[in-house]
Design a protein around this nucleic acid. Structure first.
Lengths: 337, 337
DNA sequence: TTGTACGCGTTATCAT
DNA sequence: ATGATAACGCGTACAA
């Protein structure tokens, strides 16, 4: 039987063994308050001899904290999220926190937050997705430290860690334009994320600058899937004959590459394609994808650091932290002509 | 300030409001013991009015449990693990457990388990990797419910959820052989996992059955990376001129496909390739990969179910659960000739 | 069927 | 510098 009465030793056992009071043991444990060198030595030795380990459950209960960070994302199978998750888990562990993850439909997000707040189950939360109009999140901003990673609610005062999506897409489009392309198609997703909105706006602004109408050059699909990228590209190529296609995600770009192949177009000779994110599979087959790299691991790491700051300050700092993106020129783009 | 004295209501507030004792409220909450219909109604109404939510921290402390499941894996960026993780998190949430994840080097695994056991931080653990000789795990088997998912320690009594790796690779090799191939190369990884061992053994046994020596046909690389698959395939093709290559992972197979392309070989016309796992990117570009599919989500789901059984039984059940694999015939394999 | 009272292990507030 | 002791919120013997 697991969990049989193992007569676990507690702080008072240690106190007796060390010949001091529980208060002194606690002070040694928490390194606060005054305690003589002799007493400390005696306590440490008693702890060692007895193999005492503090009961975290009791401590958390007493201190009204959990040392747990909640992570909410739609899923973790998407490599973009899973890399952020790596940054989060490793950083939080180093800082003495455990990472608790929740994935699932947006509809559940509010329930989960509520559960955390009232149940004292997490000391803070990192939100990996939210729609521009998820203003309900603000309701929790003064109840629980929250950090938004990658996405944010419009006009929110909640801290936000992300790249500059507008500037990143500008770099993408400018690069393509520098290659001589003018008829540049754009494949993006129909959702309410701020990143999506900024990327599209950036594309449109840069096209306007070179005086090319985007009419008929934009395709908005329902989700970030390979198949949707493929179908959108087929349609786009047939209708608009672009010489280049910029995508707001790598997976969409991979779909576009497949589409081009099926239609007898060679990438990049007949069609240049550029992605966004730089997830693992951009270099898993030729042509390697030209794309904009996001610092996923750092995004996760920074989010945790910011969240812990908020937890310690007992308030949301409403910092906006922007990390650097990077254009990765590889094999799917080339000079026009 | 977050966490300001919000004067959270507790069980005794409810008791007062309902005009009963805390014991009665507790009995209603936990649905045990006798309680009159009138009292129950009164309590529920009071709970509703006050918006009372039990303090999980206090409850866990009192009951010496955590309602947390620990998940240990080398990483979660690998899609194979991330899909298992999905199954785990969704299932555990449904069952009222939170999933806490730890990734990192094998060297830390023992520390983490120890921490969980003594600190009462998790009610059970799911181990996603372990080496054949990680017998130290057995030390914890009678201290904490543990389930091994995908991999297992040799001769262990700890429950184990996985596919039949031997039979799965047998299906892979037999299928390739049925296509007329005899010089079948094999790319695998140098590690101490039971899955690796079984897959290799299966390959060798099936080759022996058709009387073909495997000498020079096997390559063992250091890790499951695309680049290692690519390099191994280049070497294998140059040295041994196989007509088909079986890989013990999809990523290795993708590397092999890239290698073939670089060497002017067309897949599957000049070389058939088969993978293992069926992760997301097997269908992200042509030729789509023929492979053996593992039921990742189910693997995670079943692991949680088994673990909860163990937790409730307060002992490790030492069940061995085998889930079904499936051969997925796609575009990287064809009749020899 | 219900209520009283104690204990879970810790931290923190007071005296001393 | 140290010790006694009161919380923290809940579950549950035990008594009624």
């Amino acid at each position: 039987m697991i969990g049989e009465k193992v007569s676990k030793i507690n702080i008072s056992d240690v106190a007796v063994e060390a010949g001091v009071s529980v208060a002194t043991v606690s002070r040694v444990l928490n390194q606060n308050g005054y305690v003589s060198e002799a007493a400390e030595k005696s306590v440490r030795s008693a702890i060692e001899r007895l193999g005492y380990v503090p009961n975290i459950s009791a401590r958390n209960f007493r201190k009204q904290e959990s040392r747990v960070i909640l992570i909410v994302a739609p899923n973790f199978t998407n490599p973009y999220y899973s890399h952020i998750l790596s940054g989060i888990t490793e950083t939080s562990r180093t800082a003495g926190y455990s990472a608790m993850i929740f994935s699932g439909k947006t509809s559940n997000k509010e329930d989960i937050l509520a559960e955390m707040v009232v149940g004292n189950k997490a000391d803070g939360a990192i939100l990996l997705t939210c729609n521009l109009d998820d203003t309900w999140i603000m309701k929790y901003a003064d109840k629980l430290p929250i950090v938004q990673c990658s996405e944010a609610v419009e006009n929110s005062t909640i801290p936000y860690i992300a790249i500059d999506n507008y500037a990143a897409m500008k770099d993408s489009i400018n690069y393509i334009q520098s290659l001589g392309h003018k008829r540049i198609g754009f494949i993006t997703v129909k959702n309410l994320w701020i990143s999506t909105k900024l990327r599209k706006q950036s594309y449109m602004d840069e096209m306007k600058k070179i005086g090319v109408s985007t009419k008929g050059l934009i395709r908005e699909v329902n989700d970030y899937s390979f198949e949707n990228g493929r179908l959108a590209a087929i349609d786009l190529i047939m209708q608009a004959h672009p010489t280049a296609i910029a995508c707001s995600s790598d997976v969409l770009a991979l779909g576009a590459i497949a589409a081009a192949g099926e239609m007898g177009l060679s990438v990049p000779k007949d069609l240049s394609i550029i992605g966004f994110d730089d997830v693992d599979y951009t270099k898993m087959f030729h042509p390697y994808l030209t794309t904009i790299a996001q610092p996923c691991y750092e995004l996760g790491k920074t989010s945790v650091e910011e969240l812990i700051k908020c937890i310690q300050a007992k308030k949301n700092l409403s910092d906006k932290i922007v990390l650097n993106h990077k254009l990765k020129i590889r094999e799917t783009t080339m000079l026009l002509g």
